[in-house]
């Protein structure tokens, strides 16, 4: 195995152009190789030392998260917690303190697991990723990035350099709720993220809804028309649409029918939490704690 510790983006792009696989924190890549399950690639390029790739900056009224920004940073960054709380909810649930320190947003997004915890929040927030190669840079929405479990539309010579969070509508907020059987070192049984926009009178203008671990990729729920309804009615509609549109599998963690049922519950709760936040209620990150999900510590 050859290993390059890239000290600049150019060096990393040259390495991936020559066939190397990027490694950021390695919490997916190296862990997958433990016990000889999936051997490490022949050629690796570490991107965790590239200057500036781990910073959060303002960008067109929103935020630009460098690809190696950690889950720990996302869960505690004041602007992310304030304006993109659903994403902070997701990162705050990842693994343990060690996993959150080492694991990156770029790794989470490019690993493309249908159970990834930043995925549904990024969909409802309208996020895009910046993909760079020696040939240039392009921006794709996260909806267009994930194509199958573990598969993205990026080509093998492209690096994700940033995740872009656009400015959010007035009177809006987001939340991510996941069903977990314990409060740490867990994988989502199912999860739901919403962004709720309220009108001036506290009724709902729109709800965006995306689901975790109930389809081959993160699933955006469509045709959720709740304009003008109350928050309670919007939560009901979200519950029903989530359970209808989910196409879950059965595995050791849950049956398909249990997933279909509980993803609706999570969707309803996410709407309530996001609407509460949009109305100015202080609901701390991760919102899972407010709902008492997972066995008490």
């Amino acid at each position: 195995m050859t290993f390059t510790l890239a000290s600049s983006l150019e060096e990393a792009l040259d390495a991936v152009a020559a066939g190397a696989t990027p490694i950021a924190g390695g919490t997916d890549l190296v862990v997958a190789a433990r016990g000889g399950r999936t051997p490490l690639p022949e050629s690796l390029v570490a991107i965790d030392r590239i200057p500036g790739l781990d910073t959060v900056t303002t960008h067109e009224g929103g935020l630009r998260l460098g690809a190696t920004v950690s889950h720990a940073t996302i869960a505690s960054h004041p602007d992310i917690v304030r304006y993109f709380a659903g994403l902070a909810d997701g990162s705050a649930l990842v693994g343990s303190p060690a996993t959150r320190n080492v694991g990156t947003i770029g790794g989470n997004v490019m690993n493309a697991s249908p159970a990834m915890d930043t995925g549904a929040p990024l969909v409802v927030l309208g996020a895009s990723v910046e993909l760079a190669s020696v040939a240039g840079t392009r921006v794709v929405t996260v909806d267009d990035l994930w194509t199958a479990p573990g598969v993205t539309s990026a080509s093998s010579d492209e690096l994700c350099t940033a995740v872009l969070l656009p400015a959010q509508p007035e009177n809006s907020a987001s939340a991510y709720v996941r069903l977990e059987y314990r409060r740490a070192m867990e994988i989502a049984v199912v999860g739901a993220a919403t962004r709720v926009v309220l009108d001036g009178d506290g009724a709902v203008t729109s709800v965006d809804l995306a689901l975790t671990a109930v389809a081959p990729t993160i699933l955006r729920v469509t045709a959720l028309d709740v304009a003008g309804s109350s928050i309670a009615a919007a939560a009901d509609a979200a519950r029903e649409a989530a359970s209808m549109q989910a196409t879950p599998i059965s595995d050791i963690r849950a049956s398909d029918s249990y997933r279909r049922h509980t993803v609706g519950i999570m969707a309803g709760r996410a709407v309530e939490a996001a609407a509460g936040r949009a109305a100015g209620e202080q609901i701390s990150v991760p919102v899972n704690r407010a709902f008492g999900i997972g066995a008490p510590a």
Binding site: G26, V30, A98
Partner: peptide, 28 residues
């Protein structure tokens, strides 16, 4: 040796890391 138990926890630049699942070359 699989990132589950924490017995291998060390600090890298002061922050906890599961050393069983972190490449040594990446810690230089």
């Amino acid at each position: 040796d699989d990132s589950e138990c924490g017995a291998c926890m060390v600090l890298v630049d002061g922050r906890p890391v599961n050393s069983c699942s972190y490449l040594a070359v990446q810690a230089q």
